[in-house]
Nucleic acid binder design. Structure first.
Length: 213
DNA sequence: ACCCAGGTGTTTC
DNA sequence: GAAACACATGGG
């Protein structure tokens, strides 16, 4: 298979017909909500099923909101997110991040509108992938997150990058320079954010399910 | 028993 | 800079 750009991967995954019906059209469960922010930290080096368990625990205790997490007892938070691992570290970072969002933006809605990558990268616990995931799935900005699955997938086709941003820019550029073709593949009109969001989702799902040998 | 998962921060050369 | 290590659970 001849892969010239990320668009060829996009087309290939599209042709597989995988990930057709999504509960959430942006792929990430409860996209646009504060849950995405919580999920990005919880899912680090963990399985999504374990994250769902933690999210359930938080919901059960009525703690799954920006205001509640900003003021939660740290030991309680650790206990509730135990299923997704690294719970002491993640608890500290989640609480601090919630406080910083309130301090610098006042509300989650303002945060969604005004936050930028630079602010996110300054937060303890948010690296490039988590920051881009928040921008893409919580804030609906035009960012294409890349992860280990993306790197592994591209390596299979002979493309390797030493830096996260090099891979991300190459992935974004392949789509941006083939936008007309992308729109032909979709019946309905989609925003660039939605295209990036679903593309990343497909890559993750195809990686998780090992559909590409 | 070992390996991995929708990474990140710190320490050390 | 880049490599090595810590953070931790639970399923295959």
């Amino acid at each position: 298979m001849d892969i010239q750009s990320s668009f060829d991967i996009f087309k290939y995954l599209k042709e597989l017909g995988y990930l057709k019906e999504l509960k959430d059209k942006l792929w990430w469960p409860k996209s646009r909500s504060f849950e995405v922010v919580v999920g990005t930290i919880l899912t680090q080096q963990s399985k999504w099923e374990r994250v769902e368990k933690s999210l359930e625990n938080l919901k059960q205790e009525n703690m799954l909101s920006l205001e509640k997490l900003a003021n939660i007892n740290i030991n309680l938070l650790s206990t509730l997110i135990k299923p997704s691992g690294f719970y002491n570290t993640k608890a500290k970072r989640l609480k601090l991040l919630s406080n910083n969002i309130i301090k610098d933006f006042g509300s989650f809605d303002i945060f969604r509108e005004q936050v930028d990558r630079q602010w996110l990268l300054l937060q303890k616990g948010l690296g490039k992938e988590s920051s881009d995931s928040i921008l893409c799935y919580a804030c609906e900005k035009e960012f294409l997150p890349v992860d280990n699955y993306t790197a592994k997938l591209m390596k299979k086709f002979g493309y390797e990058f030493s830096e996260y941003d090099e891979l991300r820019e190459w992935m974004e550029e392949g789509i941006l320079s083939n936008l007309e073709k992308v729109y032909v593949l979709y019946n309905e009109e989609k925003s660039l954010n939605e295209i990036f969001a679903r593309f990343h989702g497909k890559i993750v799902e195809s990686g998780k399910n090992k559909i590409i040998p």
